[in-house]
Write a protein that binds this DNA or RNA. Structure first.
Lengths: 191, 191
DNA sequence: GGACCCATGTAAATAGTTACATGATTCT
DNA sequence: AGAATCATGTAACTATTTACATGGGTCC
């Protein structure tokens, strides 16, 4: 019984062998955009994956007081990952603190709300700009290349951020229409 | 120290008093689209909110063996909720099993992947259709009406589903181009 | 009579975050 | 000398899910 985090790790090791620390960094950086975990969750999970025969490790030289373990995918792990990929995901509980705030936004002063929304807009615009920079350097990989996984998820990220920005702008407009003293309009145009 | 779930509940009680069961249903249905919880989490949370003075309850008549408690927001609870609404949300860990699968999609047969993607497309198209039906019955409420919270989050849901559908269609196209035997194209056009 | 909705709770398990712990190397 | 990065682990806590438990009313 492999957990979702387990499949996230297997997906990384299917590309190349990594140490726990490298897995940890990847779950922060590229795959962290759709699945995150801290190292305290990763090391035990790697051990579990090893006992169930999905991965194996080899001790390699490295700095630090402890041995560095480089994990790689086994044939069984690859089989498991493959069959998981095409099984339809169970309905996912969506959680958004931003939308939860929007649900209660009618309670507060529109000006104060607009300020918060502008702050969010900036964050999402920055995120989108970062994603767009990443796409520039690569052209579309073939579907059987590992890079296709990165490319497809990156495209999803770009589409998502654009959607959020449009929604944020719509909401900001409504809030400003409601305020007597008009707040500054957002000046960036990264969309 | 109120939890995010706590604010979800306060946001509901700011509209009207509800029993734990009614809160539970709401956290499944309208607000469940951006924050979910099971009743086993809700009843203890209501008790916590009561000890911290955010809500109070009155026992009302009802069926079943136990007393029915109808909870309502206190002035303190409303104050807390208001101030939370305009504080910028902390960076949220995004989790999507669908994107996690996409990250490893290069490992599998494009035809099998396309079948899974078509299944997802159907689910998201149905979700979008449901959202669109909801908007038809209402016109845009004023920003200080509780219905504005519902309307704003509904618009977010519509934008989100449209984005997912576009991405799903793009991915499906790539997968079909890669397959020698062409799989059926999606026939719905709810976008 | 059985299925399903109303209604409220507790217990146990899993998932995830934060904090504790240690220590080498490289950069400023 | 101090901070950051490399590197691996455990402990404690919080959040969330699944399962257990009970029982009335309504619809077929």
């Amino acid at each position: 019984m492999t957990s979702t985090l387990g499949y996230a790790i297997l997906g990384l090791l299917a590309r190349e062998p990594r140490t726990g620390y490298e897995v940890s960094r990847a779950l922060d950086h590229p795959v962290g955009y759709f699945w995150t975990a801290r190292h305290s969750q990763i090391y035990p999970e790697l051990a579990r994956l090893e006992t169930s025969g999905m991965v194996r490790h080899r001790v390699v030289a490295g700095p630090g007081p402890r041995a560095n373990k480089r994990y790689s995918l086994t044939a069984k792990g690859r089989r498991e990952l493959r069959s998981w990929v095409t099984t339809p995901p169970a309905p996912e509980p969506s959680r958004s603190e931003l939308l939860l705030r929007a649900y209660s936004i009618w309670l507060v002063d529109p000006g104060a709300a607009a300020t918060m929304i502008r702050g969010e807009r900036e964050k999402h615009a920055a995120q989108l700009a970062g994603y767009l920079k990443m796409t520039k350097s690569v052209d579309e990989p073939s579907v059987d290349s590992p890079r296709f996984g990165n490319y497809a998820t990156l495209r999803a990220g770009i589409g998502y951020e654009r959607h959020v920005l449009r929604w944020l702008d719509w909401l900001h407009d409504r809030l400003c229409e409601a305020t007597p003293e008009p707040a500054a309009a957002p000046e960036s145009e990264t969309t």
